[in-house]
């Protein structure tokens, strides 16, 4: 159990897929305007990454080396289609907001990167833990960035008013820049700096 937790926290903090390995940044920036979209996106990625790591690891002795990329992509694409259809069926409004970004999980480098770097050479159990850890690291970062952008950009969290706006007689003036693309880059820059700094200090 302890080694399970240590592995999990290793891939969440020390080896965070987004801020340290610099993978999967595209979607991390695009869907973080609000906490809700960030959470749904993280859940979708968690499902795909854990399942793809598990399946690819189980098939690792069968997959021939020369055609492995095609097979990996096919497995991942199938999982993404299923996830996309589930979101579209149960949360159509959310599916429209995320537009093409759930589909783009196929080309999210975290999924293919972990399949190639970990699942192809480790057992099923380890690969599941690795997938879960990386997905949680991605989700944690996404949700934090989403929270900052929604709180300062609209004075709300998960659609609930937290800071009273000036236009409603409160004191908070929303910062419009947080709704624009550059804010995503700046916030990720901050996290990259923070995580790489703490990692260097710690042994």
């Amino acid at each position: 159990m302890r080694s399970f937790l240590r592995k999990l926290s290793h891939s969440i903090v020390d080896d965070n897929p987004v801020a340290v390995q610099l993978l999967g940044i595209c979607s991390a920036l695009a869907v973080t305007k609000t906490v809700a979209t960030a959470l749904v996106m993280s859940a979708a990625l968690t499902a795909v990454l854990v399942a793809s790591n598990g399946i690819i690891s189980a098939l690792r002795r069968v997959i021939p080396h020369s055609t492995r990329l095609v097979l990996q992509i096919t497995i991942i694409a199938t999982l993404v289609i299923v996830t996309d259809q589930i979101i579209a069926a149960f949360a159509p409004a959310m599916s429209r907001q995320l537009s093409v970004f759930v589909s783009l999980i196929i080309t999210n480098c975290i999924v293919l990167g972990r399949a190639e770097a970990f699942a192809m050479s480790h057992g099923v159990g380890e690969s599941l833990v690795d997938g879960l850890g990386n997905a949680l690291g991605y989700g944690l970062l996404l949700t934090t960035v989403g929270a900052v952008r929604e709180l300062l950009g609209a004075g709300a969290l998960l659609g609930q008013r937290v800071l009273p706006l000036v236009q409603d007689g409160g004191w908070f003036e929303p910062l419009a820049i947080l709704h624009l693309p550059p804010a995503g880059f700046f916030l990720i820059a901050g996290f990259v700096w923070l995580l790489q700094r703490t990692r260097r200090v710690a042994p």
Binding site: L22, P182, A183, G184, F185, F186, I188, A189, G190, V192, W193, Q196
Partner: peptide, 10 residues
């Protein structure tokens, strides 16, 4: 630092 690259892109 890679953080600086992100600031540049921003």
């Amino acid at each position: 630092s890679q953080a600086l690259v992100f600031v540049a892109i921003g």
